[in-house]
């Protein structure tokens, strides 16, 4: 079931529409274990919708999802999190009123065994578990070089760092599949380079499978092992970066023209 050769995630004939407006039509592709897959395409191509389908925020009208050997018609967000899917959002969705450390700790909520009462009274399993969770959170914070800001409110951090905290929160859940919705949007070249390196490090160090949406084609070609191109909710390209770059349909729809 979990042999290395089988894809971690397989989408089969996924279609999604909002009140009759088609967002995604009949999309199928595989995401290989331990690889970085990029989703690219012009605005409104259905990339974010597809991520929302994968982790259950949206329910597709047709098609099925095979994740880690388990076949589902649709996911729900909680179930997806339990099964090991974590994600970041295009518009940062951090918990603004909380510190960096607390945001990262929320990522570990599924790893808890002690009850809320044990935690509130600091008895039983809670103290040792609190230590263990903090240690894991600190590892993630250190991995993403966030130590100086661990007690800072996330709303006080600059944009680039907020993006990184969001990655930290997702990573703290120790996901099998990490979905990144434009992790480098709005960043300057320096920040993009840094973020690319973090994503590559996560992939290499933890073997986490990554699906990311990105518009910077240079970043995509360097970072990803596999590229899927969407246009108007259809898949128009699917393959290794070099192959996709030469695909005439992709050039016409996305690479060659300005949007």
């Amino acid at each position: 079931m979990t042999e290395i050769s089988s894809p971690l995630l397989r989408l089969e004939g996924i279609s999604l529409s909002f009140k009759g407006v088609k967002a995604i039509s009949d999309i199928s592709f595989d995401v290989a274990r331990g690889r970085i897959t990029a989703l690219i395409g012009p605005n409104g191509a259905g990339k974010s919708s597809l991520l929302n389908v994968i982790n259950g925020v949206y329910r597709p009208q047709a098609g099925r999802i095979v994740f880690d050997g388990e076949v589902r018609r649709r996911m729900d967000p909680h179930r997806a999190a339990v099964r090991g899917i974590a994600r970041t959002f295009q518009n940062i969705a951090l918990f603004k009123g909380m510190s960096v450390l607390d945001n990262v700790l929320t990522g570990r909520n599924l790893k808890r065994r002690s009850s809320w009462l044990e935690q509130a009274l600091r008895i039983g399993r809670a103290p040792a578990e609190d230590d263990a969770q903090r240690r894991r959170a600190e590892e993630v914070i250190a991995f993403l070089h966030l130590q100086p800001w661990r007690h800072t409110l996330v709303s006080k951090l600059p944009y680039g760092l907020q993006k990184r905290v969001e990655l930290a929160r997702a990573l703290a859940a120790e996901p099998k599949l990490l979905l990144l919705d434009e992790p480098m949007a709005g960043m300057n070249a320096e920040e993009k380079r840094e973020m690319s390196r973090f994503v590559a490090d996560v992939n290499r160090e933890f073997g986490t499978t990554v699906v990311l949406i990105e518009h910077d084609i240079g970043v995509v070609m360097n970072l990803s092992d596999h590229v899927v191109v969407l246009d108007y909710g259809r898949k128009i390209g699917d393959g290794p970066p070099d192959e996709v770059r030469r695909n005439p349909e992709v050039i016409a729809a996305y690479l060659g023209t300005r949007h």
């Binding site: 999190a81 969705a93 859940a173």
Partner: peptide, 14 residues
């Protein structure tokens, strides 16, 4: 606080 600040993200993180 997670539910207060961003309930979608809270659900997605489990």
């Amino acid at each position: 606080m997670a539910v207060r600040d961003m309930d979608t993200a809270a659900a997605v993180i489990g």
